[in-house]
Amino acid sequence: MEEKKSKFPKWLKISLIVIFVVGLFIGWKAYQTFMGASVTDKEEYLYINSGDSYEQVFAKIKSLDIVKHPNLFDYAAKAMDYKDIKPGRYKLTPGMNNRRLIGNLRGGYQEAVKFRFENIRLKESFAGLLGKNFEADSTAFSAILNSEEIAKQYGFTKDNFFSMFIPNTYEIYWNTSPDKMMARFHDEYTKFWNAERTEKAKALDMTTQQVSILASIVKGEALHVDEMPAIAGLYINRLRKGMLLQADPTVIFANNDFEIRRVLNRHLTIDNPYNTYRYKGLPPGPIMMPSIAAIDAVLNYQHHNYIYMCAKDDFSGYHAFATNVAEHQVNARKFQKALTDRNIMK
C-alpha cells in the first residue's frame, strides 16, 4: 500500500516552525525589553539634573551601568515616548524592569531626600552640607545665607539669619531650587514658633531671633541637655542685671579659632561684637545653629540666683554655679589647675 501523503507540504512545516521560533524570539526580546529584570545594583539612585536631555540621561545610565542592556532600555524609552525629561533623584531597585523605570522617569516620581542637620557651627558648613545633598552647589546656598536682602525678606538680618534654620529632619526633593528651599525652611520656622513659644519669648522681653541667639550660646556651653535650663537661667540673670555675658563660646567664635580649649586673656582682648567679654548684651547673631533643646531651655529657663559658672574640674562636662565672685574664683582656680595638670595650655 502506498503511504498517505501528508496534508502539509514539507516546506510549509519548516516555514511554520521558523515563524514559531521567530515569534518566540520576538516575544522573549519584547519581554526582556519591557518586563525583564533590568536595573542593576551598581547605583542606589539616578540623578537627573535640571536641563538634562534624553541623550544626557541615557549617557548616565550607560556610564554608571544602571541597566544590564542599555540598548534595550533605549528601545523601550523610545517606544514609550520618553521625551519630557523631569529632573530629580530616582530610586533604583535592583531587578526593576525598564517599563517601571521609564514610567517613574516620565512621571517624575522621584524620592525626596531625608535631610537632617544639627550641630552646624558656620553658615559655610551649612552651605556645604546643602550642596552635598541637593542639586544646587554650595556657592548658590552660601550666596543666599550671606545675603542681607534675602534675610530681610524673611524678617532677619544678615547676622541673625542663621537662626531661621530649625535643626530637624526634612523631606525635600533633590532638585528643589535654593530659593524655594529657603521658603520651606521659613515655613518650618513659622510652625516651630507657635503661639506658646512666641508668648514665652515675649515674657522674656525678647524677639524670637534673640531667643535663638541666646540659645546658641547655651548650646555652645552645654555638653548635657539636662543642664541647659540652668545655663540659660544664668545668662538671663546677667542680662537683666546689665552685666556682660562673658561667655567663652562667643570669644572662641570671635577669634574664629575653634580649637581653643583654654580661653586666655589674649583671646579676651579681640575687638569683635561677638566677644561678650567686651560688648554688653547679646551678640548680633547666633554663634552656631541653636538646637531645639537649647531654644526650649531658654524659653523654659531655670529660675535661680546664679550669675557665675565654671566647668567642673572633673571634666564631666557639667558646671559649678555660683552667686558671688568669691565662690566663683574658688571654682575657677580648681578648673584652671585641672587644665594645667592635664597640660591643656591653650
Rank of each mutant, 00 (worst) to 15 (best):
I292C: 02
S216C: 00
V21L: 15
E188P: 01
N331V: 01
N160F: 07
V251A: 08
A77E: 07
P9W: 08
K62Y: 05
I260M: 11
S212H: 05
A195H: 13
L223D: 02
K7A: 15
Y109S: 14
E118V: 10
T33F: 07
F192R: 10
A143K: 15
Y54M: 12
I150T: 04
L214D: 09
F115H: 12
L299G: 03
N71D: 14
K202E: 15
F161E: 04
P290F: 02
Y31L: 07
I217T: 13
Y301C: 04
A201L: 08
A195T: 12
R197T: 04
D313T: 02
D84K: 15
K13S: 00
K78L: 07
Q209T: 12
D74G: 00
V113Y: 11
A320N: 05
P178L: 06
P229R: 07
K334D: 04
K241G: 06
F161R: 04
T269W: 02
D74F: 03
I48H: 05
I144E: 03
L339Q: 09
E124A: 10
Y235A: 06
N255F: 12
A322R: 01
K202N: 15
D314V: 14
Y279I: 14
T33V: 07
Y308N: 01
N49C: 11
D159R: 11
A195P: 08
I172G: 09
F192K: 02
Y173V: 05
F25V: 14
L244S: 00
I287S: 00
N98I: 15
S212M: 12
S147H: 00
E199R: 10
K280N: 13
N272Y: 08
V113G: 04
F156L: 08
I260L: 12
T40L: 07
F315L: 04
A143P: 03
G242F: 01
Q336W: 08
P273I: 14
G36T: 12
P286G: 10
K91C: 10
A136Q: 09
I260P: 10
Y306Q: 06
K83R: 15
M96W: 09
T323L: 00
I172A: 02
Y90R: 06
Y170Q: 12
K241N: 01
I260G: 01
T93I: 13
Y54K: 11
Q329L: 05
P167D: 07
K10A: 11
I150A: 00
Y277T: 04
R106N: 09
V39D: 04
A151I: 12
A140T: 06
